[in-house]
Amino acid sequence: MALTTPDLQALEEQVPRDIARTVTRGDRIFRTLCASAAAVSLFIIGGTALFLAIKAVPALQKAGLVSFFTTSVWNPTVGDFGVLGLLIGTIIIATVSLIVAVPLAIGLALFINEYSPARIRRILTSSVDLLAAMPSIIFGMWGFFALQAPLVGVAAWLNLHLSAIPFFRLSEADAPLLRSSFIVGTVVALMIVPIITSVSRDVMAQCPRSQCEAALALGGSRWGMIKEVLLPFGKAGITGAVLLGFGRALGETIAVALIIAFTVQANPYVLEQGGGSIASLIAIKFPEAQDLEISALIAAGLALFSMTLFVNLGARAIVRRTQIAA
């Protein structure tokens, strides 16, 4: 049989052809249903943002867009609003909660994944899930009634021994230590431990077993393996987990509103009574607010919404990037 080589020059340049994409009716219906579900979630996010933006306009006009974000006042009678102090307060509380939660969560994740026997691992995993499902009002009440007294002791100790660090100073020697950002941050920390634990656990579980075995086979201890292989592998994913926790801490409302001695001004004395956050502002002021104050609360909500949205988007992006790399 003769094999003929086609004269390529004589032939036309090929272009991609159409491919018939026949879709069955069942598929079409199901796809429409799924697409609608997807559309609803986009609509909710877009609708919320739009609602907040429109309703915020009157207060922002009255108070002035710039001064709304650069002053710390809340005076509905004259229509003077500014949330700078509360934005700072929000970040202070979320930061305190991260400082408490991150070592706890990563230690817990490592213990569950690397050290615990199978039976204890199951118990711990489900109790972390349970912790995640606990309503925040419960944490708030428990924090208010049970945690304050011991935490005041911790705060006094920190102030006594570590007052070289500015954050552990007090405005005056006998300032009250109850209902502080420190106590609130610690309670919020307990609420964000589960999310940080479970995401970083998932990330570290993706580390190839062969890498871990290589480290152990070189005479590495388990801690050496964690330090040299597991943590470098999970670095980005754990960062994402921490940011997810941060996002959650920013928005935590009821526990903060319950415990903190609310002030509009930023309180740099973390251990001391008084502080606030955007979410607690809304929870505390909303029941009695009218007209312009409602608009101002919505504007504050818009600021919180944007802040958490950006933190969450950043966190998701980082987590996704590690999953692709793995």
Partner: peptide
């Protein structure tokens, strides 16, 4: 394990480390 070393079926260098650091990895680990 540091006196009895092991080479695995599938090559498993540490992906985040350079060639030189891979060689030295065992020192840091142990």
């Amino acid at each position: 394990r540091s006196r009895i070393g092991m080479v695995f079926q599938k090559p498993n260098p540490f992906p985040a480390m350079s060639i030189a650091d891979n060689v030295l990895a065992g020192l840091g680990l142990s």
